[in-house]
Write a protein that binds this DNA or RNA. Structure first.
Lengths: 146, 146
DNA sequence: AAACAACTATTGATATATCAATTATATATT
DNA sequence: AATATATAATTGATATATCAATAGTTGTTT
């Protein structure tokens, strides 16, 4: 028996989606302000590739929880920006993904900005609240991806 | 001076975006399973219009934190599905948005499912944690939309 | 009233997401 | 070896997001 409905504003999933969207926009603007022309989704790819140079697209997609089709298209953009390089491995179905020199420089430059962006988002929250926040995000993700 | 960087997996904004995405997918599938063919974004529009029949697109966009252009396109889809009706008001720049009969029935049918979907996402969290979670989502949103 | 300014909605361009279908290659089976 | 199956990546279709430009209306100002 369902007891209640709620106004949109009070619904946590609404808040969740809204916060995620606001973050993406804020991040894009903050990076642009530093002359860094990448979206947060492109950044996720760049960061993961810098953590695991030579990773292939399937693994990359899995690691960042994106569809392989999305990864293909994000890589297209990053290759056009000359931040990423694709090389065929022995298995010619597979591409090894690496940062270009330019990509490496950009990642270096961006790391600090990314830290600042994250910090800005948490202002006004205690470390206990932040702990619980992260835990809740993980739990919600788990509940919704099972 | 930035002290540290972190692996993607540990970054809360990554968790945030990932949870939001997982929710959208889960919601879509759960609704589809009940024979309800709307995305969570379409649902947000339908819900808001049911809360404020006759609302115009500008107000609607503001209320649900979407770009007016996005609202136009979501409405296009909902009109094609015959769930929404647009009527011109006296001011002929403005459209009054209303649910169709079919839209009203769908909203009725969907409300309960939506409650269940939200509940599923919170399993394993205490009400204190949920309170803090909501507060954190609001704070992050505020920090990122200022 | 005419010219200009302000406002609502739409459209086009680009980025991303999902799903289904396709291509190319590799592996397994007979 | 030839055929069938599996895997990696791409592509096309549709939905949504942002931004910029435009179209249609209304309001203002002279």
């Amino acid at each position: 028996m369902e007891k209640f409905d709620a106004e949109l504003e009070d619904v946590y999933v609404f808040k969740l989606v809204r916060a995620a969207q606001a973050f993406k926009q804020y991040a894009y603007d903050a990076l642009a302000k530093k002359g860094i022309d990448v979206t947060s989704d492109q950044w996720v790819v760049l960061k993961k590739v810098s953590e695991e140079p030579g990773i292939n697209q399937r693994e990359l997609a899995k690691a960042i929880y994106k569809d392989p089709a999305s990864v293909t298209r994000i890589l297209d953009v990053l290759i056009k920006k000359e931040l990423i390089e694709k090389r065929q491995g022995k298995d010619r179905r597979i591409y090894e993904i690496r940062l270009s020199l330019r990509g490496e420089k950009l990642v270096e430059k961006t790391l600090g900005v990314a830290v600042d962006i994250r910090k800005s988002g948490l202002e006004g929250l205690s470390s206990e609240e932040i702990q619980i926040f992260k835990k809740a995000l993980d739990q919600v993700f788990k509940n919704y991806s099972g």
